[in-house]
Amino acid sequence: MQPDKRTEIVKKLIGETELSTKAFAEKAGLPYTTLRSMLQRGIGNASVDNVMKVCKALNITTDELQEMAENNTVDLPELTNKDEQDIQKELQKMIDGLSNDGYAAFDGKEMGDMNEEDREMLIQSLEYSMRIAKKMAKQKFTPYKYRK
């Protein structure tokens, strides 16, 4: 795997946030020049702390970034409006299940016991995982003649 594949993925994910590079750098807690340098020179040349800050701002882990680069998930198909609606419905079912029955927990805490930031991070992680899974399924099960 080439180190610049991770950089390509990070650039794509930042673009999906619809924030400017300066606004994203602020969200990540990095100076704009540092983020710009990371994107120009490659994530592989950046400090681990800075990569972790970028990943946290993208709501992914460094392991997920590595996995995306290894699995080439940056080139997955786009989701349709119906796909988005299905993800939101399933996500709501998951959240309701975590909130209502008390049988599921994350990091030893039930949803009601988590602070707002942890709850939001859990929800975003679940949603991101569902999106990647849906895209991977679309890529795997869409016949070649219908792929764009």
Rank of each mutant, 00 (worst) to 15 (best):
D4L: 11
P3W: 08
M38W: 15
T34A: 07
Y32P: 00
G44R: 15
F24A: 11
M38G: 13
L35F: 11
G15K: 04
E8N: 07
Y32E: 04
K5H: 04
E18I: 09
R36N: 07
G29A: 05
A46G: 09
K22W: 01
V10L: 09
L19Q: 04
G15S: 03
R36P: 11
G42I: 09
P3V: 11
K11F: 00
I14W: 02
P31I: 02
K12M: 09
D4E: 14
R41Y: 10
A28D: 12
Y32H: 07
A46C: 10
S47R: 14
R41E: 12
T33H: 03
L39Y: 14
P3Y: 13
K27R: 14
G29Q: 01
Q40M: 09
G44Y: 09
I14S: 03
F24Q: 14
Y32R: 03
T33C: 03
A46M: 12
K22C: 00
R41G: 06
K27Y: 00
I9V: 14
L30G: 04
E8D: 08
T21F: 02
A23D: 15
D4C: 06
L39G: 10
E8I: 07
K12I: 06
R36H: 05
L35I: 15
A23T: 15
T7F: 07
L13V: 13
R36E: 04
E18N: 12
V48C: 07
L13D: 08
R36S: 08
T33F: 05
G44W: 09
I9A: 09
R6Q: 12
T33I: 15
R41T: 10
L39N: 12
E16K: 10
L35G: 08
T21I: 15
P31K: 02
L19M: 08
T34H: 08
T33G: 03
V10M: 09
G29Y: 00
A23K: 07
A28Q: 11
S37M: 12
R41N: 13
A25E: 03
T7H: 05
T7E: 05
E8W: 02
S20V: 01
K11G: 00
A28H: 05
Y32F: 10
G42V: 10
G29C: 00
L30E: 04
K12A: 12
L39H: 12
T21C: 05
A28G: 13
L19N: 02
M38Y: 15
G15T: 05
G15D: 01
R6A: 01
L35Q: 08
T17F: 09
K11I: 09
